[in-house]
Structure formats: C-alpha cells, structure tokens
Amino acid sequence: MTISNGLQTKIEELKAKQEENTSTQMELAQYNQQITQELQEAREELEAAVVKTAKSPKAANRTAEKEARKKVKELEEEAESNQVRMQRLFSTGSGELSALRKEVLKEAGSEFLQNYKTEKPKILSEIEQAKADYLKGIKKLHDLTMEETQEAYYDISRDISAADTLAREYEPGVSMHLPLLTYRANGENYVGITEEEVLKAFRSGKIEKGSVKGD
C-alpha cells in the first residue's frame, strides 16, 4: 500500500531530526577531542611553568605560571561544560526522537490496519471465487472425461449390443486420476493444488516454483 502524505512527512521529519542529532553529536565529540588535547597541552605547560618558577620565582615566571594555571582551569571548565552539552543533547534528543517514533508508528499502525480491514474482504472474495472456478473446472474435466467421453461411448456400445471385449478394444480409454493434479515429474504442475503449495503460500507468502505458469 501507499502510505499517506501526512505519515510520509512525519517519517521524513523524524529522519531529518535523527541526522541533525547525529551531526551535532559528531561536532560535539570532535570538539571534545580538541578540548581534551588542548587541556593536556595546557597541563604540560603548567607543569613546566611550576618547575620554572620553583627554580626562579621572579615576577615574570610567577605571572606565566598564573596564566598557565588560569588556562588549565578555563579548559577544565570548558571540557566539563561540553560533557554536559553532550549529555543534554543525548537526553533531549533521545526524548524527542522517542516521541516522534511513537507518533510515526502509531499512525503507521492505524493506516496499515485500516488498509488491512479494507482489502482483506476483497482478497477473500477473490479466493472464494477462485476456489469456485477451480472446483467447477475440475467438475467440467470430470464430466468431459467420464460422462461425455467414456460413458457416452459405452452408451453407444450398449445401444448396439456390442460385446464387452469389442467395446474395450475401441474405448477412448481416458480416466480421472489424482496424479493429474499432484504429479510433478518435471517439477511443474499448473493444474493441481497440493497441501504443501497452499501452506507455503499461507505461511510464508511464497508460490512454489512450477505451481503457476509464468512465475
């Protein structure tokens, strides 16, 4: 079936939101790597400044150490803030996406169920008609074989008082036999229906090869 425009729009909105969230998460993750690297470098610079000041505690060295310590603190705060951003994005994004998924699936379930209720009676009617046509066709084959051919021949035989041996010598010799509907020497049987074929179509939606001409 073709889904409604409204449902298609909601699906597209959901996918767009997913892509947006994924893109933002990637950006924050990359930024987090950048901050982590900068923080590592700043800590190394601070360690070097501390050592330098310890060896020579003059004003310039103390100022440099102070600036290095300030930079480390700022980067630590930024790294912590970015972790909060990532957590907030995950939490908020997950909630929004869950709500959208629920909305999409609720509407999809409703649409598919309505389509099922609409189409099922039509299909059952087709099956009912096909069954009737098939059984009537089998009956016509029986009538042609047994009544219009064999019985009709023996009616004439009896009418002219022919001996049984003579009648059998020239009889059409046709009959109804089950292998006509079930035999599959070459893997094909386009007129018969077996239980296996019915169950395969019913349970897995598959038509066995050789069951229907052209498939």
Rank of each mutant, 00 (worst) to 15 (best):
V104E: 01
R43W: 03
S91W: 03
K52V: 04
P172M: 10
M176H: 05
A79V: 13
S91F: 03
K139N: 10
N82R: 13
L166C: 15
A132G: 06
K52S: 04
S175P: 08
A163W: 07
K106A: 12
A167P: 13
S161P: 05
G173V: 07
E111W: 02
T165W: 15
S161Y: 05
G173E: 14
Q83R: 07
S110W: 07
I160K: 11
L178E: 12
A64T: 04
A167L: 09
Y134E: 00
N82V: 09
E107K: 00
V50Q: 07
T53L: 04
M176W: 14
S125W: 01
T92S: 05
L178C: 13
T182K: 09
T63R: 11
P172I: 04
R88V: 05
L124Q: 11
I123N: 01
E78T: 09
K106R: 11
K139M: 07
V104D: 04
K140P: 12
T149F: 08
E77G: 15
T118K: 12
E107S: 13
K117Y: 03
L135T: 03
A68D: 05
I127L: 05
A68L: 01
E171M: 11
I156L: 05
K122G: 00
K70Q: 12
K140R: 14
G173S: 11
E78D: 14
Q83N: 15
E65T: 01
L124M: 10
A162M: 07
K139C: 09
E107I: 01
R62K: 14
K71E: 12
A49M: 05
L89C: 04
Y153P: 02
E78M: 12
V84K: 09
R43F: 01
A79Y: 13
P172T: 06
K52E: 08
T149N: 13
V84G: 13
Y154T: 03
S161D: 13
S98N: 08
E148N: 11
L135M: 04
K71Y: 01
F112P: 01
Y170T: 04
N61L: 06
I160G: 15
L75Q: 07
E119K: 03
Y116H: 05
A42G: 06
P121W: 09
A54I: 04
Y170A: 11
A132P: 03
E119R: 08
A48R: 02
I138F: 06
V84A: 08
Q150P: 09
D155F: 02
D159T: 15
K120Q: 10
A132I: 05
V51A: 10
A162F: 11
A48V: 09
Y183P: 14
K131Q: 10
E111C: 00
L100G: 03
A163P: 14
L144K: 11
L144M: 08
K102E: 10
E47K: 00
V72T: 03
V104G: 05
K52D: 09
T118S: 13
L135D: 10
D159V: 15
E76V: 06
H142T: 01
H177G: 14
T63C: 06
F90S: 01
L180D: 15
S161G: 08
L180Y: 10
A60E: 07
R62Q: 08
D164W: 06
P57A: 07
G95P: 06
Y153V: 00
E169M: 14
